[in-house]
Amino acid sequence: MAKYFIKRFVVAIITILIIATLTFVMMHSIPGGPFTREKALPEAQIQILEEKYHLDDPLIKQYGDYMAGLFRLDLGPSFVKIGVEVNELIALGIPPTAKIGLFALILIVILGIPFGIISALKQNKPIDYIVMFMATLGVTIPSFVVATLIIFVFAGGVPALNWLPTFGLTSPLGYIGPVLALAGYSLSFVTRLTRSSMLEVLRQDYIRTARANGIREYKVMAKHAIKNALIPVITYIGPMIAAIMTGSFVIEKIFHIPGIGGYFIESITNRDYTVIMGITVFYAAFYIIMVLLVDVAYALVDPRIKFTKGKS
């Protein structure tokens, strides 16, 4: 198994390099240089800037420099925010993004899984219908709509419910809106997934066996059913991280949170190519590593997984 994961790790590194290369190619194939602005800069100034950022070097040398920087974990300077390094931006952006992301994750786990289980155990009862109705809304309504609704209802639009600040993370209450909006989709998805997986497991023969052997009902559920029901949920962790990541772009924009997603959107609006490139590579690397970790966790939970012939 160790061999398999070493192989996976090497593949992950190669994938990150391929993605960095593709991002580099894409960003350098954009017509006009990075200093092409609405207000045209004087020719001389552009030249100075290009020299300063080595943009006058041949493309292949720029690529070499970029990749070399990548190995030193150096993503280069921003072209728009003069004097700011991409690394600094990411370092600044990580804490708020990580905080709301982590809280969202906790919320998804502590609410989504129990809701799914309850819904499955009370199949076709009122509680099941309510939970499923909410979850269906949650997976279909985009997070930015949910976020704006939260602001409207709980941050001023309805005077009686004016409980939350409209933006920022300055007070603990400020976390509620962004975390809820960020978690909404995945929370609903996990609820639905847990429910259907639980229903599937409850129909399995081994549950009947456990009952036929007189195992107490709560133990049949808590031990035999839930562990099996959670296996498909683990496979969703990868897509869930992706959903939280991309969700954070809009959530941070709506709630004015100075996180990495907010910087990413800002860099897109400003056409700040090195920042776009840097954050993309950062996101990709983060995602790939997380998926790798999920696979390790998966192998620990499900003894049937064998790693002799790659993923099945």
Binding site: Q204, D205, Y206, R208, T209, A210, A212, N213, K223, H224, K227, N228, I231, V301, D302, P303, R304
Partner: peptide
Amino acid sequence: SMIFQDPMTSLNPVF
């Protein structure tokens, strides 16, 4: 006690 038809699925795979 009772035993069932399909031994492939009658034991819990994760224990």
